[in-house]
Amino acid sequence: MELLIEGLKKAIEMIISGDREVFAITWLTLKVCLISILFSTLIGLPLGILLGLTRFKGRRLLLLFINIGMGLPPVVAGLWITMFLWRSGPLGNLSMLYTPTAIVMAQILVSLPIVTSLTCTAFQQINDKMLLQIKALGATKVQTLMILVKQTKIAILAAIMAGFGRVIAEVGAAMMVGGNIQGDTRILTTSIVMEVSKGNFDIALALSFILLTVALLITAALTFLQQRRRLS
């Protein structure tokens, strides 16, 4: 328990003293996670809408794979991406292994299925009668989509939050494809693993408090957006 207080003290100390390395690591974590979730949203949202609203051949199979993808262990995602990015692998010429870009790729891979599947669920639950009514009122396709997005706003933001939770908590893939390189691909989760293996539990705890704070702030912002009272 003493360690816990020690860790909290250290975290505050790190933040107040403006420890450059900790700041850089936190900043990179934030950047990598936000870019990943942005891409996941940009791809997953339209894909989820498509899967939720339309019916086509192979839809169920695709949905099955996406749902399996929700449970894709990050280390597996990391392993696949590592093999693709190896110098001897198919994308070896890009020399992207051990870069933040590789981490972003892995995080998109693990968060995209979550965003897609949850969005799809939300759109599939839309009442048929409402769809009919919107049509009857003469809405264009774009207008219909806008109304539906508004209707499912809460669920969409929940999907984004779930995806964000995945990427900020992720460590296995980031370790593998990023390599935890100081000043380059070291993010909060991988540095926590490293500090634990170094036996620096106080620093690891301090970093964990910083990580939790970051996660809390982002999630709070998204929750605020989600729960905002509808004035109209």
Partner: peptide
């Protein structure tokens, strides 16, 4: 207005 809010947020 609701539509705008979501857009602004995104």
């Amino acid at each position: 207005m609701r539509k705008n809010r979501l857009f602004i947020a995104l």
